[in-house]
Each structure stands twice: as structure tokens, then as C-alpha cells.
Simulated assay, not measured.
Amino acid sequence: MHEPHRPRRALLIIDIQQGMFAGPERPHDNTRVLANINALVRKAREAHAPVYAARHTGPAGSPLAPGSALSQLLPELLVDEQRDGVFDKTRPNCFHATPLAGWLAEADIGELVIAGMKTQYCVDSTCRAAADLGLRPVLIADAHTCMDTPALGAAAIVAHHNATLAGPFVRLSSTADYAF
């Protein structure tokens, strides 16, 4: 029997950086989320799937200015800036004014695995944009996070986005279940 075409896959890690993940306000379930993201990096490497990492930056002089200490990826994150596609962004959508779409096209990526933070901003925007660009986004339900807000706790935000994005915008998976 003929096996259907399986698209080439890549991992995108969003904003796991010093000023957000390791700042004074810690993200929800941060230890587990980081462990899950690093497990995804290991799985991607074993499958020879590309790994990309976005860093959110602000204007020059801001705490997240490009090249600032707070804009740097978390040292515990298993991303290698010499090997992986690391890029800066200034908007929630990882595709806006960045090289990401070109890199994915060049690598013939059809399925984009998404993890990182903040759930309700950059993760949400990037999931929706990826689908609009014709990619098959997969959101890893236990590998994205955010902080509590005055209106809603972080656990509820994550659960809400998993439920809202699943189906129309992404395929939902878990770290343990996803295979590159």
C-alpha cells in the first residue's frame, strides 16, 4: 500500500529568553515547560529536523533591545545559535518582518511544531499565521506557557488556547506523543 506524503517537519521555539522566562515574574509551570521544550529539541535533532528559535526584541535602549542580556536565549535551552536558525522579532507573529518563512520554504518544511511563550500573544499569533501561510502547525499542548493576568490565571489561558486553536488553526499534540 502506498504511504501518503509526510511533510518535512521543523521545531519553532518562541521567546524562551532571559528577560521573559527568567525575569522577576516567572511563567506558569516553567520547569516542566522548559524540560518539554528541551525534549522536543532532542527529538528534532534525532530526526534531523531543523530547529528555529525566535527572540522578542524591543527598541534600542529598552530592556529587550537587540543584543541586550535580557533578549538572549535562556542558557538552559538546548538551542545552539551556531547550528540552529535563531532570529529576532519585534511583533507577536514570528513571520512578520523575519527570515522564518524563507527559511522554512528553503528547507521544504510543511509541518511546523510550535512551543514557547507567551501563549496568548506570540504563540497564538504564530499558530494562526502559520496556518494562513499554508503550513501545518502543530501546537505542543504541554510546551507553551505564560504568566497570570488580572483577568485569568496562566493555566486557564493555556487550556483555553489549546481548546481554541485545536482544529481550525493547529493540530494539538503533547511532548510525549509527538514524533518528528
Rank of each mutant, 00 (worst) to 15 (best):
M1L: 11
P4G: 07
P7H: 11
R9E: 01
R9G: 07
A10S: 07
L11E: 13
L12D: 05
M20I: 13
F21S: 13
F21I: 05
A22K: 02
P24I: 15
P24Q: 15
E25T: 15
R26K: 12
R26W: 03
P27A: 12
D29Y: 02
D29V: 06
D29F: 00
N30E: 13
R32V: 04
V33L: 05
L34A: 04
N36G: 05
N38H: 01
A39Q: 11
L40C: 04
V41H: 01
V41F: 01
R42L: 12
R45V: 01
R45D: 07
H48D: 15
H48L: 11
A49L: 08
A49Y: 05
A54V: 10
A54T: 11
A54W: 01
A54N: 04
A54I: 01
R55E: 12
R55N: 05
H56G: 12
T57F: 04
G61K: 05
G61A: 06
S62T: 12
P63H: 07
A65H: 09
A65M: 08
P66R: 04
P66D: 02
A69W: 04
S71Q: 02
Q72G: 09
L73K: 04
L73M: 00
L74D: 13
E76R: 09
E76H: 08
E76C: 08
E76L: 03
E81N: 00
D84Q: 07
G85A: 01
V86K: 06
V86L: 04
F87H: 05
T90S: 10
P92I: 06
N93Y: 05
C94L: 03
A97M: 07
A97N: 13
A97R: 11
T98V: 08
A101I: 00
A101R: 10
W103S: 14
W103Y: 07
A105R: 15
A105C: 10
A107R: 07
D108N: 10
I109T: 03
E111T: 01
L112I: 09
A115T: 12
M117I: 10
M117S: 11
M117F: 09
K118D: 13
T119D: 12
T119E: 13
Q120V: 03
Q120E: 14
Q120I: 11
Y121A: 13
C122L: 09
D124I: 00
S125I: 05
L135Q: 00
L135Y: 09
V138R: 05
I140L: 10
A143N: 05
A143Q: 01
A143M: 02
H144W: 08
H144Y: 07
C146P: 03
C146E: 14
C146Y: 02
M147I: 15
L152F: 15
A154M: 05
A155G: 02
A155R: 09
A155E: 10
A156K: 15
V158M: 03
H160I: 06
H160N: 00
H161T: 02
H161N: 15
N162K: 15
G167F: 06
F169H: 11
T175E: 06
A176P: 06
A176G: 13
F180A: 15
F180C: 14
